[in-house]
Every structure is written in structure tokens, then in C-alpha cells.
Nucleic acid binder design. Structure first.
Length: 364
DNA sequence: TCTGGGGTCCTAGGACCC
DNA sequence: TCTGGGGTCCTAGGACCC
């Protein structure tokens, strides 16, 4: 049984954006001041904290907190504006090390990946990987090793609290690992589901695993109920895939101050159409659907979409559709906080890209 | 001076068809 | 004249993840 159990390694970078900045700026890692990756609210209102260092966290500053509140909690904080291109470069280097040790890597985000792990459940190979990533990139990673991608991911979370940043859940130990954890630790359980579970008297993943599948489906709906039933027992039959095809490409923008200026909104949709168009072209994709998003000052959010007669990646066509949707559905007496454009129902894949971009590099 | 930006997935309800 | 039932497609909204 143990011999045949599949083995997955999940890699999660520690405080990734801050770690990159620290790798680029000697002394930053040991700076005693609160350091916040995020735009300074004194010059850029409506920002959020992307990452915070330990001194900032000690003051209650966490990812997702409004930067304005963070500044009140830490008036002497150092704000560093995010540098996404830089983080992408580090991400590529970290993932390259992982790909060197695994035949199959499924990247989940800029700083996370699940991988098939051919080295078994022993601690030495993952510790060697961690040491290698640290030596070659300066980035500290936490690693989870388990029989499924789901449990490996949760193990990587547990690993963050350990000195060696490694957590191994051996075959058969899944239930005892998951059982004591709070339901909120389960991937897919957010604030809303947590409150509902609490109302049903369910506090831990073990408590969830103790309920029948039918009861969970009744409480939470078909798909989510089944997911909770399986996941709470460590059951996850997904297979990894290295290449994920994008289903939508979008751009959105929050204005520093709410606006009712039609020209400002149209101009923003136009620039977003150009950005989305460029990304579609880069991927060799065309969209059969265009959607807009409007968020009003009171946070009420409206989305409207339309199908296109012909699939396109053309910026003019995307902008025209998006503007048309705005004219139809925007209530011009209401100030807009955020506007966004999304291209959906993507078709094309890589073939058209190679046809239309003859000098593109071969895939690899 | 509360609350970014890029995504995925699911569900309810209505239209439409046979 | 009370009012089938199943299937599919589409839309808008919302939860969730990093």
C-alpha cells in the first residue's frame, strides 16, 4: 500500500513579495521597522497590503488589509510599491528548480505549485530541494508532502510553522493530520462557509468528516457538499496537469476617487481593451464574449456580458462591445469606483499563434 | 481616507425545445 | 382549460484563491 501510494509535493514560497524585495535589498530582511509591500496610501488611496514583514504583523497588519488602516496601525511603516515583473522573474527561477526535481509541475499562482514527487516520503530530498531554492534564489519555501495535491497543500501550510519548513503526511495519516484543524484551514472554506459551518455546530475538519455526505449536500449544495465530504477525509482524485488553458483574460481598475465622468470611463475601457487584446494575441487566443464590471461607491457590483458575432482579439472590437454594454447598463447618476473588462469564451489555442506569429519561439 | 487585481467554479432562474 | 417534465443554454451574482 505504502509502496504504491502516489506522492505529491506542494511548494509555497514564504512571504513571497517581501522575500523578493529582501533578496534585492541587503538589510531589508533585518530592518526593525514595519515593512509593507503595497502602495503608500498618502500618495495612492485605496490600496491594500500585499505582504507584511514580522514587525508589521506584530501590529496586526495582514495581507488584504486596507493600506490606510495599516498606516494608522504603523505610522512609521515603510511602504514598498509592488514590482510584479520582478516577482515574476523570481517565480520563474523557483519553479525551474522544482521542475528540475519533478516530472510534472502544476503551477497554481506566482508563488505556489503542486508537483508529482518521484523521491518518496523521506525528508531528505525535499529538504535538499528547499536548500537548493534558497541557495539559488534567496527565497525560502515551505513544503508539504502527501498522497494527494490537496493534503500536500495543507501540509505546506502547516510546514510554515516548523523550523525546517517541511511537513510530511505519510500514507494512511491523512485523517489524523486533518482532523484537529479548524474548518477554515480547508482549501475552499472561506469566511462565509466558515460561519455556516459554525452555525451547524461544525468547528473542525474532523467534525466535518463526521457528518454524512447527504447532510453536507443538503446544507451546502451538490458540488460543494460533496467537495467538503471528500476533502475533509483527505480524498482528492484530481490529477495534475502542467498546462492550464486560460478561460478568461481581464483587466480592472479602481479609481482613486469615484467618478461619474463618462469620458473617463470610456477611456479606461479603451485602455483595458488594448491591454486584454495584447494578451489575447500573445496567447494566440480570440474571445467570443466580452463582459464589463462596474462597482459603485457602495460596493454594489454589476456585471454584464455579450456574445460577439465573430471571435476576435481586436482592441477596437473589444472596446466597442464593452462601451456598448456600459451605455446600456450604467446608471449615470451613480458614481463608479471600479471598472473592468473581461474577454471570455476563448478559442484558438496555440495553433493560430504560431500561424500569426511565425517568429514566435517553439513551445517548450 | 477600508476594502487591488487576476482568476476559477458553482448556482439560481429564465428561455427555449421537444 | 388550470398549470408535464426533462434537457440544455445562457446570464448575473457570489464565494473563494493568491
Amino acid at each position: 500500500m505504502t509502496d504504491t501510494a502516489p506522492c505529491y509535493l506542494f511548494l509555497d514560497c514564504d512571504r513571497f513579495y517581501f522575500a523578493v524585495e529582501a533578496a534585492e535589498r541587503p538589510g531589508l530582511a533585518d530592518d526593525p521597522r514595519p515593512v509593507i509591500i503595497g502602495r503608500d496610501p498618502r500618495t495612492a488611496p485605496r490600496g491594500i497590503v500585499t505582504t507584511a514583514n514580522d514587525p508589521a504583523r506584530a501590529l496586526g497588519i495582514r495581507s488584504g488589509l486596507s493600506a490606510a488602516i495599516a498606516l494608522r496601525l504603523a505610522p512609521n511603516a515603510l511602504f514598498l510599491p509592488p514590482r510584479h515583473e520582478l516577482y515574476e522573474r523570481y517565480s520563474t527561477r523557483v519553479m525551474a528548480v522544482l521542475r528540475d526535481e519533478s516530472p510534472l509541475v502544476e503551477q497554481h499562482s506566482i508563488d505556489e505549485a503542486a508537483s508529482l514527487w518521484p523521491h518518496g516520503f523521506g525528508p531528505e530530498p525535499p529538504l535538499a530541494l528547499r536548500a537548493r531554492v534558497l541557495a539559488e534564489t534567496g527565497i525560502s519555501v515551505s513544503l508539504g508532502l502527501a498522497t494527494s495535491p490537496l493534503v500536500a497543500k495543507m501540509a505546506s501550510e502547516a510546514a510554515k510553522k516548523r523550523a525546517d519548513h517541511l511537513c510530511i503526511v505519510t500514507p494512511g495519516a491523512e485523517a489524523s493530520f486533518l482532523s484537529p484543524l479548524p474548518v477554515r484551514a480547508l482549501v475552499g472554506v472561506g469566511p462565509k462557509a466558515e460561519a455556516q459551518l459554525r452555525a451547524a455546530g461544525i468547528e473542525t475538519i474532523g467534525g466535518l468528516a463526521g457528518r454524512s455526505r447527504d447532510e453536507l449536500v443538503t446544507l451546502f449544495g451538490r458540488a460543494y457538499g460533496r467537495y467538503l465530504s471528500d476533502a475533509s477525509r483527505g480524498v482528492d482524485h484530481r490529477t495534475l496537469s502542467a498546462e492550464r488553458v486560460a478561460k478568461s483574460i481581464s483587466a480592472e481598475h479602481t479609481f482613486p476617487h469615484d467618478t461619474t465622468d463618462r469620458g473617463v470611463l470610456r477611456e479606461r475601457l479603451r485602455s483595458q481593451a488594448e491591454e486584454v487584446s495584447a494578451r489575447l494575441a500573445q496567447e494566440g487566443l480570440r474571445a467570443e464574449e466580452v463582459a464589463i464590471k462596474l462597482r459603485y461607491a457602495n460596493w454594489q457590483t454589476l456585471t454584464r456580458q455579450t456574445k460577439l458575432r465573430v471571435a476576435t482579439a481586436d482592441a477596437e472590437a473589444l472596446a466597442a462591445s464593452a462601451t456598448g454594454l456600459m451605455q446600456l447598463h450604467w446608471d449615470p447618476t451613480r458614481a463608479v469606483r471600479l471598472i473592468g473588462l473581461r474577454a471570455g469564451r476563448l478559442t484558438g489555442g496555440t495553433k493560430p499563434a504560431q500561424q500569426s506569429l511565425p517568429y514566435d519561439e517553439p513551445p517548450g
